[in-house]
Amino acid sequence: MTQPMVSPKPWWPMEVGFFLIPVAAFFLFPLHLPLITEMMILALFAVSLDLVLGYAGIVSLGHAAFFGLGAYAAGILAQQGWGEPLSGLVFAGAVAGVVGLLTGVLVLRGSDLTRLMVTLGIGMMLFEAANKMNWLTGGADGLQGVMVEPLLGAFQFDIFGHTAFWYAYAGLVVLFYVARRLVHSPFGLCLRGIKTNRLRMSALGSRVNLHLLAVYTVGAMMAGIAGGLLAQTTQFVSLDVLSFERSAEVLLVLVLGGPGRLYGGIIGAVAFTVMHEVLSGFTTHYWQFWLGLVLVLLVLFARGGLLGLVDALRKRAARGTASAAAPERAA
């Protein structure tokens, strides 16, 4: 190696293998395709939050605002007669992105607490607005009559969820690739710098707020596309896409997987969905209790999430082999 690497060498084969898991799941669990599709959408949503929170350090209590905006944008477009899915998805991303850009200016002012309040407040405002604008959103009954045309003009969204599965899979893979390039770029490094030491960054001449605004907008766009995917694959939008619970849920998913690692969002989405299925299986609507317990335990004992645990175990194993090797050398 002639040039010293700035970032650790990416492990491509393992990553490719990771993204083949859903393909295997398609064949292994043909009856659970809608669930896996939703899981992939949740993963994409969590990855979008990871850019904002894990890499840029912006704690948001209202990320669902963009998810919901995307869902309603794609849903309403299809309901009004423009059923072509890909352009609908672009529209969803654009609407969320524009709102992200406009509100980002406000969010970046002030302290953590003010940020929490402003993100939460904007999220609540959108929720209330969608709730009251019956004529457009269907209000509390949800958005009915979303008609999505065949994908690429050829693949009908079928009742088994085959098309939906591959559509969401493609969305996740493409946007994950974008996010991955972004975090390994100079821009990504700059965000990590801002997250760890803002003062030093401005002493290096960095336009800190501009960069934060940029990543907030990108995160909003990705969340919007995730929302759009949900609306198109389920052909329905309910009010809870904008709810506070949805924002809290995606935070949990990310923290569960491990923020600041990109894969944390995906691992978290899988763990969350499995947990949801298992726990709500035997305690139906007290599932929230277990959710809360997991959160509390996570913060108390495993701050890096599941991937953080894996890292810690790997480190311990490395230390274990090192100390095991030491006596041999002595002998």
Partner: peptide, 29 residues
Amino acid sequence: FPDLTPLQAVVLAINEREGRSHRFWRAVD
């Protein structure tokens, strides 16, 4: 930057100076 390496930190500083920190597609390396 406690979590970054000195190399990453200095690259970061140079990127800022050269106005490259908004580049988001090509890798740092």
